[in-house]
Design a protein around this nucleic acid. Structure first.
Length: 661
RNA sequence: GGCGGCAUAGCUCAGUCGGUUAGAGCGACGGCUUCAUAAGCCGUAGGUCACUGGUUCAAGUCCAGUUGCCGCUACCA
């Protein structure tokens, strides 16, 4: 009996509103959970909320709610969101639940007994407003004042409970090095090992000033266990019951790169310490910790002020437009599973959706279903004589199956998806080469057409199995249409058997092949405005570069006022590397705001001659990436003889930012 | 400053143990096709594999250095 598959997401900070970050991590976990369920394994998928931060108390107070009521409300927002997004988590742990709190207390008690948690002294600069200690270096920088309310920091000493992290450095190093505790991707593993090598110090795990919220240190009510210690332990508390203990250790733990250190070092060290206690000898380390990176949005870091923050409302809009599976597909195949961040853009979303889901999977299903209905009345035909290319489709499906299963096992989900799609592409190619729609014009050829369509349907069935973890809704729909509803039933009963189901040749002749609405209706780009926001489309037509329209005969005044022309002062200028015409200018607008603008005037102006002078600047020109630099607007120049450029400048110096009208 | 990582087609990325002519998807262009969702298929263009040097019969791949970017960390402010 293999060990059950146990996958976790971090538990989410309950003061947050769900956004793309939460959804991304959770969808990754959901996808691998579904894959392992499809294999027929026992799976446990855990997510939840982290509720014991002091700021949760503050946030509740601001709203005139009890802390618990506020936490309830927000935890429900997460739980409802995850349900609505169809996540298949088996439990939703909240750290304010008794089942969690009692076990955390027990663990800390055990660590107190073994001496891995001890009472020590701490002295440092304390910011009373923020209820936190400020490191010496930072305190000095802040001139020993609170950055929030500017009140002086106070020298404060207190007794704190410490975790003897230092004791576990070597063991941790060895476990990570050997991949016994597998930190992924590789670069993150190196990062952690490098930092461990610099030395580990014991870490405080409690704070004083109990507010009645949180978990107190056993036997010392004046101390509350630090929220992140409390939170980390959720992965264990949730399964520390007689029925669930065999789920431990976690097979895969997905986290964001921001919490790598806690999860790669402190968390396993806590487990190592706990394990020394006789009652917790079963507490092994998680097998794999996977730290993904972050999403940017439309080319920029997400921020509320930029208005590009991908919150739940935006995600809901995508779901409404494209469907839940499309969102899953985009996040999983385009997401930042490596060490670099990925960009979420509306345009790219549509491109990926159209290319992979509408044009490839959806369209292929349609043509196969349609021909089956047209030529065989909607019943899967019995195979006729061998048709050249059919065996190749089978081989492609079998090869893709092997590769996809391996990729899923190895958490390379985008590769698994690509393998699934490759089966569909093989079908499209097969149809093209055999032209069943032409053969069918002569009834004598129908047996061959039967072979062809049977092959296509069978390959589609396999593709639908391979893609189901990413696209559960739509692949489930394919199962329904192909008379494979038993897959869904078996999944629900925990009796799925992917390894058997993917074997070639299981669609019985005569199976009704049902039509229906397109699974992934194609989406057209917005008609007149291809470049919606911050980052313009970076691809440029190479040959047929549309000539910019020349000046119109006549424009309205409103056309002119649409241009935001400004006077700006050149703060600095420098040549753009590898570009012999470009200068990169930093322009100062009003209030010291600066903009980067590229200008092709290097042939006529030396950088040093420009600094300090004023230019006329078109501020609301769509940003454009030129030679790797984003140019935010353009400076205006007149064309002199020989096509040389002469910069416009105000007759006398005016305040930077002055409008030109 | 230290440590680590990355740099491959217009874009997003694969590229195994060093081994044939460096690949995929998207995008562009041309053609074919009509079962299918303006879908599909074929083809073409597009590469100094960041740069320099080294090892080797052979380097995108290994080594050293350089540049740029990213992460962690230290220091400064």
């Amino acid at each position: 009996m293999t060990k059950p598959f146990y996958v976790t997401t971090p538990i989410y900070y309950v003061n947050d509103r769900p956004h793309i970050g939460h959804v991304f991590t959770t969808v990754l976990a959901d996808c691998v959970a579904r894959f392992h369920r499809l294999l027929g394994e026992r799976v446990f998928f855990l997510t939840g909320t982290d509720e014991h931060a002091a700021k949760v108390v503050d946030a509740a107070q601001e709203r005139g709610l009890s802390t618990q009521a506020w936490a309830d409300q927000n935890a429900k927002a997460f739980a409802d969101t995850f349900t609505r997004l169809g996540f298949s988590h088996d439990d939703f742990i909240r750290t304010s639940e008794a089942r969690h709190k009692t076990r955390v207390s027990a663990y800390v008690q055990a660590l107190l007994n073994s001496g891995d948690v001890y009472l020590g002294d701490y002295e440092g600069w304390y910011d009373a407003g923020q209820e936190e200690y400020v490191p010496e270096a930072k305190a000095k920088k802040l001139d020993y004042k609170s950055p929030i309310n500017h009140k002086p920091l106070v020298r404060k000493s207190e007794k704190n409970y410490y975790f003897r992290l230092s004791r576990y450095a070597e063991r941790l190093q060895q476990l990570i090095q050997s991949d016994t505790f597998h930190v992924r991707p590789e670069a993150r593993k190196n990062e952690v090992l490098g930092r461990i090598a610099e030395g580990l110090e014991d870490v405080p795990i409690s704070r004083t000033g109990a507010s009645g919220w949180g978990i107190t240190v056993p036997g010392d009510e004046a101390h509350t266990i630090y929220v992140w210690i409390d939170a980390l332990l959720n992965y264990l508390t949730t399964v520390d019951t007689p029925e669930r203990r065999d789920l431990w250790p976690a097979t895969v733990q997905y986290v964001g790169k921001d919490i790598l250190w806690f999860h790669a070092v402190i968390w396993p060290a806590l487990l190592l310490a706990l394990r020394e206690h006789a009652d917790y000898a079963w507490v092994e380390l998680p097998q794999t910790l996977y730290a993904h990176s972050f999403w940017t949005s439309e080319g920029s870091k997400m921020s509320k002020s930029l208005g590009n923050f991908i919150d739940l409302e935006k995600l809901d809009a995508y779901v409404a437009d494209y469907g839940l599976d499309a969102l899953r597909y985009f996040l999983i195949t385009q997401g930042p599973t490596g060490t670099t961040d990925s960009d979420f853009s509306a345009e790219r979303f549509r491109e990926v959706y159209n290319a992979d889901l509408a044009n490839t999977l959806g369209n292929c299903l349609n043509r196969v279903v349609n021909m089956t209905q047209r030529y065989f009345g909607g019943a899967l035909p019995a195979p006729g004589p061998a048709v050249e290319g059919a065996e190749a489709v089978r081989a492609a499906a079998e090869g893709a199956t092997r590769a996809a299963l391996a990729a899923y096992q190895d958490l390379r989900l985008e590769e698994a998806a690509a393998q699934g799609l490759s089966v569909v592409r093989a079908i499209d190619g097969f149809i093209e080469r055999t032209q069943p729609f032409k053969l069918a014009k002569d009834p004598a050829n129908l047996p061959q057409v039967g072979t062809i369509l049977g092959t296509c349907a069978e390959a589609l069935r396999i593709a639908s199995l391979l893609l189901w973890p990413l696209l559960p809704e739509k692949c489930g729909a394919i199962w329904e249409r192909f008379g494979c509803g038993r897959y869904a039933a078996a999944l629900a009963a925990g009796e799925a058997a992917l390894a058997e189901w993917v074997a070639w040749g299981q669609l019985a002749p005569g199976t009704p092949i049902q039509g229906g609405d397109g699974l992934f209706p194609r989406r057209q780009p917005p008609k007149d405005a291809p470049a919606p926001t911050a980052q313009p489309k970076q691809t440029q037509p190479k040959r047929a570069q549309p000539a910019p329209p020349g000046p119109a005969d006549e424009v309205g005044f409103e056309d002119f006022t649409a241009l935001d022309l400004r006077v700006a002062t050149v703060k600095s200028a420098a040549a753009v590397p590898k570009a012999d015409r470009l200068l990169q200018l930093e322009l100062e607008l009003a209030d010291g705001e600066t903009r980067t603008v590229l200008s092709g005037i290097r042939a006529w102006y030396a950088p040093e001659d420009l600094v300090g002078r004023q230019v006329v600047y078109l501020a609301n020109l769509a940003p454009r990436k030129i030679r790797g630099v984003v140019s935010q607007g353009m400076v205006l120049a007149g064309n002199d003889v020989g096509n040389s450029a002469v910069l416009l400048r105000p007759e006398r110096v005016v305040a930077p930012g002055a409008r030109v009208t």
